[in-house]
Design a binder for these strands. Structure first.
Lengths: 328, 328
DNA sequence: TTGTAAGCGTTATCAA
DNA sequence: TTGATAACGCTTACAA
C-alpha cells in the first residue's frame, strides 16, 4: 500500500495525495475528504524511507550510551527526551557495551542519514575519526568526551569536582585518603584522579599511586579495592570513589571489617544515584546536574542540526558535593 | 557523495560500485581495488536510506520500553542485544514514558518501514489496534502483554508467581498478609493480585481489598503504602510487593517504626533487581529470568521477521522465589 | 566482468 | 486546484 494505491482509489494523482498529507490547505476540501477517508479505511501510513530519501530529513536523533546497567543515565536521558520531543524530534537509544564495533554501527546511522544527529556519552573511536565525523555531521558529546577532539561537548569539570570532594575530606582532618578509580579508563576518571592528587598536593599529603586502586564497575570490585586500600600500612581514614556503585561496595567492605562508615571511616562516591540516597548508610556523593546535562546536550545538538550553531563549544555544568551519612 | 560520484571517479558504472560494496567477489580484483581506494579516500559510506528503499530491509529492530528508571530492564535488554547482534540485527531503544502518543510515534517506525520489527515491553494501545499491527508487521510483546490481543508474547506466569510467594509466607505461619501493588494498572499486576488472593483463599484467609494498597513506582510510595497497611486493625505480619523498589520502601517504613524485616515482619518483592541483593537487609524476591526473556523474545521476533515462524504463541518462562534476609 | 536501466515510495517543480 | 514527471541513492535483472 503506497500513495499510488491511494491515488488510484481516489481517482487523483499521487501529488494530490502527498499534498493532502503534508499541506492539506492546498487541496480542495472535497478532494481532501475523499482522500483522507480512503487513507483511514486502509490504515495507510506513508513510507518514511521514501520520504526521507527525498527530503533528507528524519527528525530523529540517536543517543549512544555505553551501558544500560547504570543508574546514572536515566536522568540524563529524561532531559534529552523532554528537550528533543519539545522540538518534535524523536529519540532513539543505542547501547554499545563499550564495543567499538557497536559504536561504529550506530555512527553509521548518522553517516548513512538514518538519523539527523548523534549525541554520544562514551566513545572509543580515534580522535581523528571523531573530528572527521563531527566536521561533517551533527555530533556532540556528553559527560564523557574525547580529549583533543574538536567538537562540542557538555560535561562537568571532573578535575575540580574530585578536588572539591577530596578537599572536603582533608578539611575534615583526614590525612590518609584512598581513591577507588575505574579500569575503564576514560577521561573523566583521569581528571578525577588528577583532582584527587591536586587536593592532596596542596596539603602536602602523600600522592603515591598506591592510594589509587582501579576497579571495574561492579559492587564486588569496589569491595575488593577497598580491602586492598585498608590493607595498606597507613590505612586510609577516608575513601573517594569515582562512582556510587563502587562507594557502596567500599561501604560494605568497611562494615564487614567492623568499621562504621561515617564514624570510623568516611566514604564519598560520585553521581548521586538513587542507590546512594536509599542505601544505608546513605552515601555522600558528588552530584552532576544530570537532567540539565541531558537538556543542554539535546539543545546543542538540535541547534547544530538546524544550522543555528556551528561553532564547537565546551559547555561546563556545575557540580555539587552532597554530604550524607557515609562521611564526616 | 553517492555511489554515482565514486563510479565517475573510478570510471565505472554505479552497478560495479554497488557490487564492490555488497558482492566484492563478483568484481575483478583490479577494479575492486581501484574502487575501494576511492571509497576510502573519500570516507564514503553508502546512504542506507536508498538501500532500504530498494531492498525493503533495515536489519534493525526496535525495543519499546516504558521507562529507563527501572533496574528491571537492563538485563532483558542485554539478552535482546546479544541475541539480535548474533543474527546481525541492530537494536534501537525507544522510551515511551508510558505515553500513548510516544508509543504511536515508535510504532510508526514499524509501519513506515524504518525498522524490521518491534519488541514491546509495555503497550497502552487499544487491543484492536495491536491486533491489526501484529497481523501486518513483526510485533511481539515481552513481560507485559495486552489481554485479548492476538500476538506472540514472552513472559512469566505472574499469577502463579504471586501465588507461590504468598503461599510461602502462609506456610511460614503468616495469617495477616498485605500487598503493595501498583497504580499503573498493568495485566501483570492484575494477575499478581489474583495470585495473591488465590493463595489466601486456599487457606481461608481474609481477602478483603483493604489488604491491597496501590502505590506508584517510587520508594516513598512503597513507604507510605506500608504505613497504611500497618495501620490496619489486624496489622500484617508479612507484605508482598509487586516490585523490589516498593519492597525496599516498605522495608524502610518498617525500620522507621522500630520493626526489623526478617524478624518482626516479612517482606517479599519482585524482579530480583541489583538493589534487592545489595540492600540491607537483602530483600526476598520473585525472580524472572530476565536475560533469557530478552533472548527468547528477540529470537521470536527475528523468526517472525524472517518468516520462519508465523503462528502466534504465548511463551511462558519459569520464575523463582528467592528468600533473603527480609523474610522468615 | 561490466554496463544499462528499471524501480523502490516519496516530494517538489512546473505546467495546465 | 490538480497532474505529470523528475529526482532522491541504491540494488538487481538482464544484456553485452
Amino acid at each position: 500500500m503506497t500513495i499510488k494505491d491511494i491515488a488510484r482509489q481516489a481517482g487523483v494523482s499521487t501529488a494530490t495525495v502527498s499534498r493532502t498529507i503534508n499541506e492539506p490547505g492546498k487541496v480542495a476540501p472535497e478532494t481532501r475528504q475523499r482522500i483522507t477517508d480512503i487513507i483511514n479505511e486502509n490504515h495507510f501510513v506513508p513510507n518514511s524511507i521514501g520520504k526521507t530519501l527525498r527530503t533528507a530529513r528524519t527528525d530523529q536523533i540517536l543517543a549512544i550510551i555505553p551501558s544500560l546497567s547504570n543508574d546514572f543515565y536515566p536522568s540524563i536521558m529524561k532531559g534529552l527526551l523532554d528537550t528533543a520531543r519539545q522540538a518534535s524530534y524523536n529519540v532513539l537509544f543505542g547501547v554499545t557495551d563499550f564495543s567499538e564495533r557497536e559504536e561504529r554501527r550506530f555512527m553509521n546511522m548518522l553517516t548513512t542519514k538514518q538519523v539527523d544527529g548523534v549525541l554520544s556519552f562514551y566513545s572509543s573511536l580515534p580522535v581523528a575519526e571523531l573530528n572527521h565525523l563531527a566536521a561533517g555531521y551533527p555530533y556532540i558529546q556528553g559527560c564523557e568526551y574525547s580529549e583533543g577532539a574538536d567538537l562540542t561537548y557538555v560535561a562537568i569539570d571532573n578535575e575540580q569536582a574530585a578536588y572539591d570532594a577530596v578537599s572536603y575530606l582533608i578539611n575534615k582532618g583526614h590525612r590518609s585518603i584512598g581513591m577507588i578509580s575505574s579500569n575503564i579508563y576514560t577521561y573523566s576518571e583521569k581528571y578525577r584522579e588528577q583532582g584527587f592528587n591536586r587536593a592532596k598536593e596542596e596539603h602536602n599529603l602523600d600522592t603515591g599511586s598506591r592510594y589509587i586502586m582501579r576497579a571495574n564497575y561492579q559492587y564486588d570490585s569496589g569491595f575488593d579495592a577497598c580491602a586492598h586500600l585498608l590493607a595498606q600500612p597507613d590505612s586510609p581514614t577516608a575513601i573517594f570513589a569515582v562512582s556510587d556503585t563502587l562507594a557502596i561496595g567500599a561501604s560494605k567492605c568497611c562494615v564487614s571489617m567492623g568499621m562504621q562508615p561515617g564514624k570510623d571511616i568516611s566514604i564519598i562516591g560520585f553521581d548521586n544515584t538513587t542507590f546512594s540516597q536509599i542505601y544505608n548508610p546513605s552515601i555522600s556523593t558528588v552530584s552532576q546536574p544530570k537532567y540539565e546535562i541531558g537538556c543542554v546536550a539535546a539543545g546543542a545538538l538540535i541547534d547544530r542540526i538546524s544550522g543555528k550553531d556551528t561553532a564547537n563549544r565546551r559547555i561546563l555544568m556545575r557540580h555539587d558535593l552532597i554530604i550524607r551519612a557515609s562521611s564526616i
